[in-house]
Amino acid sequence: MSAPFFELEAFGEGTSLVVAMLIGIAFGWVLERSGMGSARKLAGQFYLRDLTVFKVMFTAIVTAMLGMFWLGWLGFVDISRIYVPETFILPQLAGGLIFGAGFAIAGLCPGTSCVSAATGRADGVAVVLGMFAGVLTMGALLGSLGGFYSSTPRGVLTLPDFLGASYGVVVFGVVLVALVGFRAAEAAERRFGGRVDR
């Protein structure tokens, strides 16, 4: 049996929903245990005081990347069947800026706001409500945005395609960036220190 299971029809829809539920619970639990439900901790990142978010995210990226790469290499995962969202340069740049501003103001991103709300934090609940209001507003405005929403399309674009390098070289590059980043993050924390906890 090789993955992705649902895509290759090893799982039915029901099974895949159950699996998604279990993965979601595990994801939320890990986020909360890494302290990412706290807006204070997340905001610390923007002052270089506490780079836990950066370290947790990059650790997850490197772990998942190495896992997918080697499982794919061994033939257990068909990585060509994994969904890659399409790239639209300008709308995604604009969206990224809005998202980043919201992240810095709220101190929470979509996933961490759910975790924060689930642990009963009022700011977390406010961010979740705001997020859904934003999604609905965006949906209502979509028509009047004209062609901007789908402008500058680049299709499905991955780093190996974009850089013209093999997957292996890209994997090595990302690992290197992560390790150097971890070092730099710890150095920044030591310098700007004073960790704020929960």
Partner: peptide, 8 residues
Amino acid sequence: AIVAGSPR
């Protein structure tokens, strides 16, 4: 991974 190249 560099040596492995690309996954199948």
